[in-house]
Amino acid sequence: MTSHRPTTLERAYELAREGRCRTVSDIKQALSSEGYDRIQDALYGPKLSADLRKICRENYVPPSGAETVD
């Protein structure tokens, strides 16, 4: 049985909602570490970046012990 691996775009949205990524750059780093490629191509465009940033802001939870900077 083969497991379904989300597309780069699907995984980017999952990462944004999980609360670990604070920025789109964090999402791109996470995707890279998970072995995704062509990340720049998949996550291209101002509307998409703005959407992911908004989701990150709404869901981000700082690691325990980390100071928040506003």
Results as ranks from 00 to 15, higher is better:
M1Q: 09
T2R: 13
S3D: 11
S3Y: 09
S3F: 12
R5M: 14
R5G: 04
P6D: 00
P6S: 05
T7C: 02
T7S: 10
T8R: 00
T8V: 09
L9M: 12
L9P: 00
E10A: 13
E10P: 07
A12R: 03
A12P: 07
E14F: 12
L15W: 05
L15T: 00
A16W: 08
A16E: 03
E18L: 06
E18Q: 12
E18I: 06
E18A: 11
G19M: 13
G19I: 10
G19R: 02
C21D: 03
C21H: 00
C21L: 00
C21V: 07
C21F: 04
R22M: 10
R22C: 02
R22D: 06
R22I: 01
R22K: 14
V24P: 03
V24Q: 08
V24M: 11
S25R: 15
S25D: 15
S25N: 15
D26Q: 01
I27E: 00
I27S: 00
I27A: 02
I27L: 02
Q29I: 15
Q29L: 15
A30F: 02
A30L: 07
A30W: 04
L31N: 08
L31D: 10
S32Y: 14
S32G: 14
S33P: 01
E34A: 06
E34G: 07
G35P: 08
G35F: 08
G35K: 13
G35Y: 05
Y36T: 06
Y36W: 05
Y36N: 10
D37Q: 11
D37K: 06
D37E: 08
R38W: 11
I39E: 00
I39W: 05
Q40S: 13
Q40C: 11
A42Q: 10
A42E: 08
L43K: 07
L43M: 03
L43T: 06
Y44T: 13
Y44Q: 15
P46D: 15
K47S: 12
K47V: 11
K47W: 05
L48S: 12
S49N: 14
S49A: 15
A50F: 00
A50M: 12
A50T: 10
D51Y: 06
L52D: 10
R53H: 08
I55M: 06
I55W: 02
I55V: 15
R57H: 01
N59D: 01
N59W: 01
Y60C: 01
Y60L: 05
V61G: 05
V61C: 13
P62S: 12
P63H: 10
S64V: 09
S64P: 08
S64H: 13
G65F: 13
G65M: 13
G65N: 11
A66L: 02
A66M: 08
A66Y: 03
E67L: 12
T68R: 08
T68C: 05
T68A: 02
V69Q: 11
V69T: 09
V69L: 14
D70K: 14
D70Y: 13
